[in-house]
Nucleic acid binder design. Structure first.
Lengths: 149, 149
DNA sequence: TGCTTGACTTAGACAAAGTCCAATGTAGGG
DNA sequence: CCCTACATTGGACTTTGTCTAAGTCAAGCA
């Protein structure tokens, strides 16, 4: 029952995304559809190579370059966020339309989306802004997840 | 006058660092001394290759591997922080003994140390902790610096 | 439905950042 | 001053990401 609901929601989100992209003049290809599908879901924070690995299971001939290109385009369009935790590779977060921060397990690297209270930007006093015009703030909470303890 | 004071302070910090390391059983080599010297200062956030480039001017035969090793050891010992902004390479921040966050220019990449008010950890409600035991939080403020506007 | 065209994809070369290893060098205790 | 364990070196290797030239195909149009 919940499984069915979740699927329906995901399907809706997917078609929304593909619809938005089509409206913005995106040519719809099998490769792009697969990349978008792989990225769909909650708490999804895959590296480019992980996205490629999963995409290959659905579309064996998809190339790494296309995955990189597509991810870059999704980021430019604001549909996907790049997340730089301390890991070596950048991660891609499809949850771009809801403000959130990240909670990272120091042992296994799991990442959860979290929603702190207040606006982090407001915590930086004028005297600490060095004349910058601020555009945003990212918070990475560090800890150890239940499975790793 | 201020310049002199600053130099004196830096010198004090440096010898403190080397002293602490010696006490922890660090074998003191020319290479390690040079890496530590290169890292000294305020708002210093160099990449490993930048550290290497500067170290080479003082000690031409120092190798990249040694710079990586030494930086890794300084991080393990808690004397230097690794900073992962959105850039490709990790940066190394010698200001490890005073809690601070970072303000990054989106255009030129300049990084300033800043001190927001309040404890970022306190902004994450229990219901958003997913059973993690929290150990810290990093805040990256994004903006455009005066020089880039 | 079947062209046409320019945007998209591909494979592989290349680049950047970082790791690893066997051989060599040296700091510091005895 | 000598040892020896620890540190350094150079180069090969890995991982992550970028670029390019050539081939392919989505989508508008007849």
């Amino acid at each position: 029952m919940f499984g069915f609901e979740t699927s329906a929601v995901k399907l809706a989100r997917m078609s929304d995304l593909l619809e938005r992209l089509r409206e913005r003049g995106w040519r719809m290809t099998a490769q792009r559809r697969v990349v978008a599908e792989v990225l769909d879901g909650d708490h999804v924070h895959l590296t480019a190579d992980e996205v490629h690995a999963r995409a290959v299971t659905r579309l064996p001939e998809i190339s790494r370059a296309t995955v990189y290109n597509t991810l870059g385009e999704l980021v430019s369009l604001g549909e996907v966020l790049e997340v730089a935790t301390d890991k070596r590779a950048k991660r891609y977060d499809p949850n771009a339309h809801q403000a959130h921060q990240h909670l990272v397990c120091a042992r296994c690297g799991t990442i959860r989306d979290v929603h702190p209270t207040g606006d982090p930007l407001a915590t930086l006093p004028d005297g600490e802004r060095f004349g910058f015009s601020l555009t945003g703030a990212e918070v990475t909470f560090r800890g150890v997840c239940p499975d790793c303890r």
